[in-house]
Design a protein around this nucleic acid. Structure first.
Length: 752
DNA sequence: GACCTGCTGCGGGATG
């Protein structure tokens, strides 16, 4: 219990943390009417007040993380006089900064510290005021901080001379990406300028791997980061997986005559159960978001009721998106947003009743984040997942009979309940971000010695996987592209191309926006699709309602030529396009061989589950890994996409074309004996160098500045990020030894 | 084979 400061004698005894806060902050807390401090606040306050530790505060959305950090930080900052900006808060979204700004203004006022915000939508006048009189707390995006280094590099030292703390909001949104690496580098460069360490406080949703988050917050020092994980138990969660069967399309009938389709049933169920409340409906693709919001609106019109369903995704105009956000936030009328991951994190949209997820979620981490958007104020969080699978007939492809999407979604829900979620890939080199940071560091001070650059960015900074020899190759690659020149004194300066790049305002972001590739068949254009991943000849894709195999990729012209895919069992895409983790596929296998039926399945999903298990046993997948189908082989590996891609690249070295398809690898033009022979040959050699293996993959350019890298560097980068040779060899060994994908699993009799 | 995020400085014209 917290007592007002005027009679704080009784309060002190009960909350030691409260008693240690600045009196003005105690008064502020009192005016908020909080009954007590939250568990994480009680623990974070002493951790931040005592010493200069880095701290991660991890709790569910709306768990009071911001206050847990800001109250002790302000207490300390106010106690010591210092010039310039005292606290810097970095946030992944402008909208979040605006939210925080409003919330913090009053607290800042209480202790006499001004709050500033700095992002692309903040006017020059406000920015000018801060530069003239730097003080208080600054809320900023990584991109704006980058711009500050490039445009005002020499001012950084004075601006941040008295900086006491750095707060990273929504830490989980940065971990593992190039934007995250950019942020790590900027924070490190700031410390290099100040010539001292500044304590970092990370605020995060509950993470799957706290050790990795700590290592992210303080590279090479994660072990010393103080971790404060909320012990408050999450509220009640209600989960349901709903299954639907889509009848086979008949070409001779129009859609109107087709009767109920899975789409119409799902739309009907959403309309009936979600209307009248505030909900978020997550759908994995923008095009599907459009399709579903159109279907829901049409249904509302047909029933003569007001439409409450509105689309929200990244390709919609800012105005339209803000209309939907405003409706959600105001809470005046019931409204549901049909959205992609745009509403997964960020702005406070008030209390949301139900989360719907159409299709298998992209990852367990993402599902958890989405679920966290509902169930505030003691109400249970509700998640309904809708899965549709095709009707089975005599010519249904083998993979469709396994009901893979149903099993994937069920596996992910199981892992969510267990508390697991995907860790990031810690080994990724991120050369593209090193290009940006090298140029930015040079622009910051006008020029730099190669040795200093390597020490600052790699040896003491976050690019620790890059040694001095590799860095020298990297610098030569930049020089060859005109980004850098070396003066007669050996100082690196921006070259003509480098100046052009740095002076373009697109330079400040570390990530790239999708570019479109033209797709053509025999020279005739079929259309264009955005591609931001490696495209390998032989890979299959669905485009314009037809199945194709990639024949040739022209990276310069941004053209992809395709030929119609051959018969057999073509892939059926499902779920997100995200890389699925080993653990999810392993859990799927466990569900196939098990006897229990998860309690969260509805009757439709139970039926799909039973069909999938039946097909699994008919194919004898419990004891065999390879199913031959005409000229093609299905190799069931039950591993994540990183290992599947690696085995695909290994097979390509043996001149075998294959494509990853959910839990299996689809190899064409080879029989079971042939595949086994290739696996044996691969294992008989010493482990392949991942960099050599990467050379077999076409179009490895994925990140923003990959175009400036040599093939050698691109291979290192690709190998670090997308290949797992050790994992691949372990799986192939299991296949040859006839071992189960699950350690300790004993094949058992097929149930009746 | 998906989705999302971010952005400077300056000049010109309108407005108070």
């Amino acid at each position: 219990m917290i007592s007002p400061p005027s009679n704080s004698d009784s309060g002190k005894a009960e909350s030691e943390a409260f008693a240690r806060l600045h009196p003005a902050l105690q008064r502020w807390i009192w005016t908020q009417g909080w009954p007590s401090l939250r568990d994480i606040q009680e623990r974070a306050i002493p951790a931040i007040l005592d010493g200069d530790h880095d701290v991660i505060i991890s709790a569910a959305t709306a768990g009071g993380k911001t206050e847990a950090a800001i109250l002790p930080i302000l207490t300390r900052v106010v106690a010591a006089e210092a010039p310039g900006i005292r606290v810097m808060g970095v946030s992944p979204l402008k909208a979040l900064i605006n939210d925080q700004y409003r919330r913090l203004e009053e607290i800042g006022e209480a202790v006499g510290l001004p709050i500033h915000r700095w992002h692309g939508d903040v006017g020059q006048a406000n920015k000018g005021r801060l530069l003239k009189k730097p003080a208080g707390l600054l809320l900023i995006t990584p991109e704006s901080l980058e711009a500050m280094f490039v445009r005002r590099g020499t001012l950084i030292r004075n601006l941040f001379a008295g900086l006491g703390f750095i707060v990273v909001d929504e830490l989980h949104a940065f971990v593992g990406s190039e934007r995250g690496r950019q942020l790590q580098t900027l924070l490190h460069r700031l410390e290099l300028v100040l010539r001292r360490r500044v304590p970092r406080i990370g605020l995060s949703a509950t993470l799957g791997d706290m050790g990795m988050a700590a290592e992210f917050l303080r590279p090479a020092g994660g072990a010393h980061v103080c971790q404060i994980v909320s012990s408050e138990r999450g509220g009640e969660v209600r989960l349901q997986l709903r299954g639907y069967i889509d009848p086979k399309m008949r070409r001779d009938r129009s859609e109107e005559q087709m009767g109920p389709s899975a789409f119409r049933e799902i739309v009907g169920h959403i309309c009936e159960n979600l209307r009248g409340r505030r909900n978020l409906i997550f759908i994995n693709q923008k095009s599907a978001v459009e399709k579903y919001s159109d279907g829901l609106r049409t249904l509302c019109e047909a029933r003569n009721v007001p439409n409450e369903f509105f689309p929200h995704h990244g390709s919609l105009s800012k105005g339209l998106r803000e209309d939907v956000e405003r409706m959600l936030k105001s809470g005046e009328t019931p409204v549901s947003a049909v959205c992609t991951s745009t509403l997964e994190l960020g702005i406070d949209i008030g209390d949301v009743e139900t989360i719907a997820q159409v299709g298998s979620p992209p990852s367990v981490a993402s599902m958890r984040q989405r679920l966290g958007r509902s169930g505030r104020r003691g109400e249970p969080a509700v998640l309904r997942i809708y899965i549709d699978e095709p009707e089975i007939s005599s010519d249904t492809p083998v993979l469709d009979t396994l009901r893979l999407e149903t099993f994937e979604a069920a596996a992910m829900v199981g892992l969510l309940v267990e508390g697991w979620c995907e860790p990031p890939i810690p080994s990724a080199l991120h050369f593209s971000t090193l290009v940006q940071q090298s140029l930015s560091a040079i622009a910051q001070v006008g020029g730099a010695k190669a040795q200093d650059l390597w020490q600052g960015l790699c040896q003491s900074g976050p690019f620790q996987g890059i040694d001095d020899a590799m860095f020298a190759v990297f610098l030569r690659s930049l020089a060859a592209n005109g980004l850098l020149v070396q003066s007669s004194e050996g100082i690196l300066l921006l070259g003509e191309q480098g100046e052009r790049l740095v002076n373009n305002y697109d330079f400040y972001s570390a990530f790239v926006t999708d570019e479109e590739y033209r797709i053509e068949h025999e020279g005739r254009p079929l259309g264009s699709i955005p591609i931001n991943h490696a495209l390998i000849p032989g890979q299959m894709l669905i485009f314009g309602g037809r199945r194709w195999t990639v024949q040739h990729v022209d990276e310069e012209q941004k053209r992809v030529s395709v030929v119609p895919a051959r018969g057999g069992s073509p892939p059926r895409y499902f779920g997100g396009g995200a890389k699925v983790h080993d653990r999810v596929r392993e859990e799927m296998f466990r569900l196939y061989v098990g006897h229990d039926v998860p309690a969260f399945l509805d009757s439709g999903a139970k039926k799909l589950f039973a069909q999938g298990r039946e097909s699994f046993h008919e194919l004898r997948l419990m004891e065999r890994r390879i199913v031959q189908h005409g000229d093609d082989c299905h190799v069931f590996l039950w591993v994540g996409d990183r290992v599947l891609d690696t085995i695909g690249a290994l097979l390509r070295q043996c001149n075998v074309t294959s494509a990853p398809c959910a839990a299996c690898l689809l190899a064409s033009g080879v029989d079971e004996r042939g595949i086994i022979g290739h696996f044996e040959a691969i294992l008989s050699e010493s482990p392949q160098d991942p960099k050599v293996l990467a050379a077999a993959v076409k179009n490895k350019r994925r990140e923003k500045h990959d175009g400036f890298l040599t093939e050698e560097l691109l291979c290192s980068d690709y190998a670090s990020r997308d290949l797992d040779v050790e994992g691949a060899r372990r799986v192939l060994r299991c296949v040859l030894d006839g071992l189960s994908p699950i350690v300790g699993f004993r094949p058992c009799a097929i149930p009746p």
